[in-house]
Design a protein around this nucleic acid. Sequence first.
DNA 1: AAAGCACCCTGGATGC
DNA 2: TGCATCCAGGGTGCTT
Length: 290
Amino acid sequence: MEVIGKKQNRRVYMPELPEVETIRTALESYIVGKNIERVTVGLPRLVKNVSVLTFQQKTQGCTILGIRRRGKYLTLLLSGSVHVMIHLRMTGRLLYMDRLPAMTDHIHIYFRLNKGFLVYHDVRTFGGFWLVPITGMTGIDGYDSLGPDGNSPKFTATYLYWLVQKRKSTIKAVLLDQKVVAGLGNIYVDEALFLAKIRPDEKANVLSLHACKVLHEAINQVLTQGISHGGTTIRDYVNGIGKEGSHQHFLQVYGKEGSPCPRCGHTIQYIKLGGRGTHFCPLCQRRKGR
DNA sequence: AAAGCACCCTGGATGC
DNA sequence: TGCATCCAGGGTGCTT
């Protein structure tokens, strides 16, 4: 009888770059051009850098001109003097709805538009909203210090090589650092390292230029595939209009502990690395960057 | 300067 | 069956 890893059913979802991009795309056609008539905040601590009153006063009456993504952040571009920046963290959802649902559990903020509602739903309430200036630095450290997006031309193999050389921590920890590359989270890091045949607990500074080229290509590939599949739906991630993604069906190692490696058949292993659940194949993900 | 870790939070899974 | 405990993780901030 096959041994199934204990963590097999312990799944959560995290919006990473592909999920946030999918939400952005889904929302765009529904909210751009709409007017914000009224903003309701049920949980004030989710508004991070201004008072709830200021948040409402600066956004009410504005038109939504666009919605932009950078790393895992979304920004509503408004017609007024500020933009609204949003991070979904672990369990945040941003949804367009024709009308408010009868069950409003976990709905902490919503924007009443001239038609429909933009609703923020968050079970663990780690997410946040910021008012930011239209141009220049936002003053939000986590945003202003973001590295290049993992799927942007600015993120190159040589940049990655230059960076890992001075890092003594594990390659997984480096890839999760948003200052290095923006948008990767636990799922896509495990998947990219599997594709590149690099162990997650490998020290970053031993990777060769060749290994960095392979890894860079793998990161691009998992992000591109994740976006094309509409994101990964694990338990309850949905995009901006409530649709599930399909990338969970394409995951090679994440959540697959105890199952055979799709490449070599060895059992996928689960370890803790830097406090994060980590999945890899101990046989075909080798140490040392070839 | 960088690395490591506690913390925030909730609901589902597990343990007794 | 029920109650208590554990666990997941992104990013911040503190300590080493």
